[in-house]
Design a protein around this nucleic acid. Structure first.
Lengths: 255, 255
DNA sequence: CGACCGTTTGAGAATTCTCAACACAGGTGG
DNA sequence: CCACCTGTGTTGAGAATTCTCAAACGGTCG
């Protein structure tokens, strides 16, 4: 699905929407060397405390960022889908404080820090674009703090689904029917709940006619209501409608 | 204590520890123009959605970053003390997704984006230092996600106090007796609890002989035990060694 | 077929919240 | 100087949400 447009193009496109890059910069970003790598479900890309020398761009599947402690307590702190750089910040902080794990069979592109650094040093605009990209990531973390600290179980799930809906929309998927490459256990790890309770909340959402989550993905029937329950407002994602409108007028990417 | 050392010096000093800056860079950072501003308790420095043109460096008091929604639900997402830049990221993301509020009477230095940008454009090292600084901020947010999602009320509070202890230590305060310029309501807003429950947990911590929190500040009697309860390990702050180990020379504080 | 992973459901337990009341300090105006 | 008022901390009791433990089910894959 959507493989016509590569992950690198998606990522650079988004960088370019948030930062006005010149075409030489765009060219050199698109020309970044990378290694394609398949990661089986449950496998780690990066361990906690590990020093990395490349950043990971998600090409397919879903990558989760986990914070874990000795007791095995595990919290899913971020979810990355196609076109997301899961650890661009590793360029300036190579020792990972968290762990990156494939939530489903995935493909990532490893891009050496070296190349990224070089571009950033050569062009302040690129440096700015990188910094801005990781800042959006931080925004998402802050939003999650809000959700975990102040929302009920149902709302947290609604919030998460709303966010994923918008992010999928931004990469050309149907915002109301997108694949959810994660189990209910993963949703629980992301929302600070138990999988048992997540299951009950899914039922609640289903019975209210808002969302159906199956193995195949999420089908959202009432996006507005879902966003309302989840206290969700997409500003913090900085995905200006630009992307959405542009697509409406022409080539829809299929599916 | 450390009032001899200004906030700007503290901040630049920390930048320099995390990024190897040349002395011209350090000079120009220290020479950054700024406006000193007193903020009364409860007053906003920055509103949600507002476009800002300057970043705020905390000189005294405590500044909180809040995420709020229409219903008045309010979550404290970050706490800034002396020497912290509360919104360096505003340089690349001028429209604030959160709100900055003084938790106590505070003094901040407003530093125009213009000057910061200029330095970052002129020196890739400075750009890197800035990016790295905001990445630590993101690390803290991620850590908070972990605490909110996976820790009990008691642990969350222990975690927060442990973090504040280390951060105060890093700016020259006594790590076991530092001012807490926040009310129990603020602690509750930070930990996703009610102030009533925070109060009970404080009692629990007091009765266990671990911490005493009064209007004057926090007095930690058993730092190791507190860190253990809070599942706290200070790596993510990227502060340690330099400041601390210089004194203890080789001894690891926790673990 | 059997094993396994993920989902689903039930029932009781634990944590945390809500509501309510009171204490105590500091500041304000009479 | 006192009365009052507001903000903060403290405590109690019952209620609500979420967890834990336990069991069963269905699909998928070797």
């Amino acid at each position: 699905m959507n493989d016509s447009l590569g992950a690198l193009e998606l990522w650079v496109d988004r960088l370019g929407r948030r930062t006005r890059l010149g075409s030489p910069e765009v060219e050199s970003l698109l020309a970044l060397a990378h290694r394609r790598e398949s990661i089986a479900k449950g496998r780690d890309l990066v361990r906690q405390g590990e020093a990395v020398e490349a950043a990971c761009l998600v090409a397919s599947g879903t990558i989760g960022r986990f914070k874990q402690n000795r007791d095995g307590l595990r919290q899913l702190a971020a979810i990355y889908i196609k076109g997301d750089m899961s650890d661009l910040h590793s360029v300036v902080m190579p020792i990972s404080a968290t762990e990156l794990t494939a939530l489903q069979d995935s493909v990532v592109l490893r891009i050496d820090h070296h190349g990224l650094r070089e571009l950033a040093c050569r062009s302040p605009l690129v440096a700015e674009a990188f910094w801005r990209d990781t800042t959006v990531d931080a925004n998402i973390a802050t939003e999650r703090v809000f959700a975990l600290g102040r929302l009920s179980a149902l709302s947290r799930i609604a919030h998460l689904l709303s966010e994923l809906s918008v992010r999928h929309e931004a990469i050309g998927d149907d915002p109301c029917a997108f694949p959810l490459h994660m189990s209910q256990v993963h949703i629980a790890e992301a929302t600070g709940l138990t999988s048992v309770h997540v299951n009950r909340m899914f039922r609640e959402l289903r019975e209210r006619g808002l969302v159906e989550v199956t193995r195949l993905g999420a089908v959202i029937h009432d996006r507005a209501q879902l966003a309302k329950i989840g206290q969700f407002s997409p500003d913090y994602l900085h995905l200006p409608q630009v992307g959405i409108e542009r697509r409406a007028e022409g080539t829809h990417l299929h599916r």
